[in-house]
Amino acid sequence: MISRKVIKKIYADFENEGDGALVRRGITKSDQELLDPFVSLVEFSVSPPGGFKDHPHRGFESVTYMLQGGIIHQDFNGNKGTIHEGDVQWMTAGRGIIHSEMPEEQVNKGLQLWINLPSSDKMIEPKNLDMSSSEIPRADEYGVEVKVIAGESMGVKSPFYTKTPIMFLDFTLDPRSQTHQTVPESWTAFAYIIEGDEGVFSSSDSSTVQAHNVVVFGTGDEVSVWNTSSSRSLRFLLIAGEPIGEPVVERGPFVMNSQAEIDMTIRDYRNAKNGFEMAKHWRSE
């Protein structure tokens, strides 16, 4: 096995998103080429009366993973639900969707990952799926616990998947424990540290990484992680995906391949057509 080296670390600092929301941006436009097929990663905290009110999307998929509290989501196709701590919402925006994401409790925290769609799939029909914490496969041995949201780890495999193939693993390492995760050699891979300040993310690097950092890995077929703390657990997401290799143009809630497609998407939304027909009449509750 060839262990992947760390090629970049990105600290996700707090930003005020307005409407009572604070976010940490782990992936921004400057890192999209390096992290293909991933477009965005945010850790969010939102409290009432704020929230993410009715807004459109096109051209990508999202995975929302709750860490605390609950988020109530609705979309113009009639989907409505609430995801709580440990639950996941998968959303394929495809050709167009309008939805809202509003806080249920006083403190609500989670992560949202945007995954690009290839040009051939950007105009597919939208869909939505909620996955409860109890449905997520998990394994636990030798001081390592993993929740397999997508992909395979420690002999267990998730039955859920995104259109663009990815791996989405939530690891918790006890003090002084380690894990070695196989990752397809051609895939992009990174980790996001949720809790713990003494994780080492490469066999060739002894430096520890603080919480709220994105750790980008180079080539190889294995990611090795050690928790060097003698007292604190280390929790991180390991995310990997198959690169698409196409141009990415992001403008706000839209992810397309060219500025011309972005312009067309804005016109479609304003004129309520080509996937946004419900924009004229639909409002969330």
Rank of each mutant, 00 (worst) to 15 (best):
M1L: 05
M1V: 15
S3R: 14
R4N: 11
K5N: 12
K5A: 15
V6W: 00
K9F: 01
K9H: 07
I10H: 11
A12S: 02
D13L: 10
F14T: 14
F14N: 12
F14E: 13
D19N: 15
V23D: 01
R24W: 11
R24A: 08
R25P: 09
R25V: 10
G26F: 07
S30V: 12
S30P: 07
S30K: 07
L34H: 02
D36F: 04
P37S: 07
F38N: 05
L41W: 13
E43V: 11
F44H: 03
V46K: 01
K53F: 13
H55V: 01
H55N: 04
H57P: 04
G59S: 04
F60I: 02
F60G: 02
E61V: 08
S62K: 01
S62R: 05
Q68Y: 09
H73M: 00
H73Q: 11
Q74E: 13
N77C: 12
G78Y: 11
T82V: 06
I83V: 06
G86A: 08
Q89S: 04
W90L: 15
M91Y: 14
M91K: 06
M91N: 03
T92W: 14
R95N: 06
G96Y: 08
G96L: 05
H99K: 05
S100E: 13
S100H: 13
E101R: 00
M102N: 13
P103V: 10
E104R: 03
E105L: 13
L113Q: 00
W114K: 06
I115H: 10
N116E: 11
I124K: 09
D130N: 15
S132V: 15
S133W: 05
S133R: 12
I136E: 14
I136G: 13
A139Q: 07
A139D: 08
D140M: 15
D140L: 14
Y142I: 15
G143F: 10
V144N: 00
V146Y: 08
A150P: 04
M154N: 07
M154C: 03
M154Q: 12
S158K: 11
P159A: 09
F160R: 06
P165N: 07
I166F: 10
F168E: 09
T172G: 10
L173N: 05
Q178L: 08
Q178D: 07
Q178M: 08
Q178R: 06
Q178A: 10
E185H: 15
T188R: 04
F190R: 11
I193P: 06
I194R: 01
E195Y: 09
G199D: 03
V200W: 01
S206R: 09
A211S: 09
N213L: 12
V214R: 05
V215Y: 13
V216K: 01
G218C: 12
V223T: 00
V223Q: 08
V225G: 01
V225C: 02
S229G: 07
S231P: 06
S231C: 00
L234A: 01
L237K: 01
L238T: 01
E242S: 14
E242H: 08
E246I: 04
V248K: 09
E250L: 12
E250M: 13
F254L: 01
V255I: 13
V255S: 07
E261D: 14
I266E: 12
I266A: 02
R267D: 09
E277F: 08
K280M: 05
W282H: 07
R283P: 02
R283K: 09
S284I: 14
